[in-house]
Amino acid sequence: MDLSAFEADNSVSCRLTSPVPDACRTEDCCLGIDEAGRGPVLGPMVYGICFCPVSKKEELKNLNVADSKTLTEAERENLFLKLDKAKSFVGWALQVLSPNTISTNMLQRVKYNLNALSHDAAIGLVQYALDCGVQLKEVFVDTVGPAEKYEEKLSKRFPGVKVTVRPKADSLFPVVSAASICAKVARDHAVKGWTFAEDLGEVDTDYGSGYPNDPKTKSWLLKYLDPVFGYPQFVRFSWSTAQTLLDSKAFAVHWDDDEEDGEKGAARQKNTSMLSYFSHSKPKGHSPTHKTHRFFTERRLQNVDTF
């Protein structure tokens, strides 16, 4: 598969898949699950599965798959190409969760945390394999949250499938290592190929590791913070690092149902209200000459005068 297919649209979550080998529809199969990009404040999180017939476990191991975190970028890409060439007995699927999807879910009124999002992504991928006719008998998973509870949850969801959830599963089971490699390669390409809005100009891509404690990442977040519209959709705005910068550098927003407590009142007095950004009067019949802000173009919003 062309690796350029891993380059993500700015705000769109998507699923990428390989063909399902015929052998996986006729033989008992094992499947591994792992993710890449759980911690960074920048870029998507990618959940991956890899599956093959149980009879081919040794052949998969002989491809020298390993935990993606122990490999260089070049080694990961080389191993992904090996996996893709082994299409007669290896299949994979990826769920790419955009930064916007992650943050919107985490900040919705009904609590939906990152663990729940991760569990649902994994369950969706296993169900995809079953719907494609994969004769699934064994599932191996790198744990998210307590291993025992996660194992019980998956076992109830997929009766008849033996589920094994272990910490560091990507270093214990080759089929999980293979899933780890697919997920990591996909995330690397999505981050490198990210398309930023035109009004940002030439974007500095030297943002370090993307992890919140990286000084380069913090500097990048500060540089590309818009005081009204926040961040490009490359940023997970629900992360505390981003939230802290927004609270201190962006215009305050007043919601009608905000409680008038001392803390919120002080915060509103500290920052200029966002309404002041729109308060400049314009002559009647004035036609704006500025370009539409990326906030609107990214969300495909436009002005209307009739409904």
Rank of each mutant, 00 (worst) to 15 (best):
V12S: 09
T244I: 00
T195L: 11
R187V: 10
T104Y: 02
F140G: 03
E73Q: 14
A122H: 13
D2A: 02
Y224E: 07
P167E: 05
L246V: 13
V175M: 06
F196C: 03
E151W: 07
V228E: 09
E152A: 14
L83E: 07
E75M: 08
N271F: 09
A129R: 01
A116Q: 14
A147V: 03
A93R: 00
E138A: 09
Y128M: 15
V141L: 00
L42W: 10
L60P: 01
G43W: 01
A197W: 03
S281V: 11
N271G: 12
E58V: 05
C24A: 06
A121V: 11
E202C: 03
K218A: 02
R268W: 07
F6G: 01
T72L: 11
E148R: 13
F296V: 12
V228M: 08
R157M: 15
D305G: 10
T306Y: 13
K111G: 08
L42Q: 01
P227G: 06
Y211H: 10
D9S: 08
A86V: 09
C24W: 00
Y112C: 05
D204V: 08
V304D: 00
A179N: 00
P232K: 03
R299C: 07
G208N: 00
L107P: 06
V191F: 03
K218E: 07
D131E: 13
E58M: 08
F278I: 09
C132D: 08
G43C: 06
P53T: 01
S177Q: 00
K137G: 03
T292I: 13
E35R: 08
W92C: 07
S273L: 13
V175F: 10
T72A: 12
S276M: 15
L172D: 06
K137N: 04
C29P: 11
D256V: 01
V203H: 12
Q127Y: 08
T244H: 15
V141K: 02
L16E: 07
R157N: 13
